[in-house]
């Protein structure tokens, strides 16, 4: 028995090294921030709480409901985690979930894990939480409605970012991957929204204190509303643009130096050499440096080996 993988878990091999590394750096910085924020804000009670909540999200992703024609609705959980635990703790929880899925189940790769964490964990939490918090009205109905929209948009932003990464890696064409990913995820997002809303409604009925004024859920500052709102707005404006005018984006990517072969429709980072070192001489120097690092590492390891006791 295994959960059905969500099409957003990118396996290794589908993103170029540069895109993977950029995503890792971005994710690691955000995670670092989340760690320092949670260390400051949360009591020691939060460690087991986040641990169990990670297991909860993992398990809850297995809850499905039949939709039609053999497809089924699922939960991804980024928005839900951020809404009930607060954004920073939600991000850490999602990071752990995606890490275990990649490591233990090969559901998502390792080198591309930074991208997967960014797309499915950090971004969904930020968008989901920010939009949810924008409903400052007391009425639970409105809150739940907004949570549903937030959950849907969180999935859509994740899908959009995934598409962009695939395009930048030269794995997919913009004009194909964006409509395809967004189309599929518009449906996946509906499932996400429905489960998120009914789960929140259940929690509001049975333990309203967990979502009340005093809860972790209400502690994120107004900045989140901006973050979530802006990202969501960007998605809404960007997606139609990207799929109707892919050439424009290709040009932008070329100007940013992402481009090896702009003319080819395959996308800018077709991963031949280190793209930032595209000029031959620079490329050679870069390769030389890597070579020196590797040889140095090997010598160092052998030296350590001789020192360590067998």
């Amino acid at each position: 028995m295994h959960y059905s993988p969500v099409p957003m878990h990118i396996p290794d091999g589908f993103l170029s090294l540069v895109v993977s590394v950029i995503c890792w750096i971005t994710s690691a910085s955000i995670i670092g921030l989340a760690i320092s924020k949670t260390n400051k804000a949360l009591g020691e009670r939060q460690i087991p709480l986040m641990g169990i909540m990670a297991a909860f999200i993992f398990a809850a992703q297995m809850i499905n409901f039949p939709v039609a024609g053999g497809t089924s609705g699922h939960l991804l959980g980024g928005a839900l985690a951020a809404i009930v635990l607060g954004p920073w703790a939600g991000m850490l929880v999602m990071t752990a979930v995606i890490a275990v899925q990649g490591l233990l189940f090969q559901d998502g790769g390792l080198l591309v894990m930074g991208a997967n964490i960014l797309n499915m964990g950090l971004l969904t939490a930020a968008v989901g939480y920010g939009l949810y918090r924008s409903a400052s009205i007391r009425s639970n109905k409105i809150k739940l409605g907004v949570a549903g929209i937030a959950a849907w948009l969180s999935v859509m932003t994740g899908a959009l970012l995934t598409s962009l990464e695939l395009w930048l890696s030269g794995t997919s064409q913009l004009q194909v991957v964006i409509p395809a990913m967004l189309g599929v995820h518009a449906l996946i997002g509906l499932g996400e929204a429905m489960i998120t809303v009914s789960a929140l409604a259940f929690i509001l009925r049975t333990r309203p204190d967990l979502l009340g004024e005093e809860s972790e859920s209400a502690k994120g500052g107004g900045g989140w509303i901006w973050v979530g709102g802006l990202i969501a707005l960007a998605v809404v404006l960007f997606s139609p643009l990207a799929s109707t005018d892919p050439d424009g984006l290709n040009r932008v990517a070329a100007d940013l130096g992402f481009l090896g072969n702009a003319q080819s429709g395959a996308g800018p980072l077709a991963g031949y050499t280190l793209p930032f070192l595209a000029f031959t001489s620079l490329g050679k120097i870069g390769a030389g440096i890597i070579g020196i690092i590797v040889v140095g590492a090997v010598i160092l390891l052998v030296g350590r080996g001789m020192k360590a006791k067998a």
Partner: peptide, 26 residues
Amino acid sequence: VLWRARVAGNMAGQLFLRSYERSDRI
């Protein structure tokens, strides 16, 4: 579909509460 989604959501909510309480005991 809506009804089925609600049932699934209730399950998720229930699982959440149980997990939350478990984290207290842990």
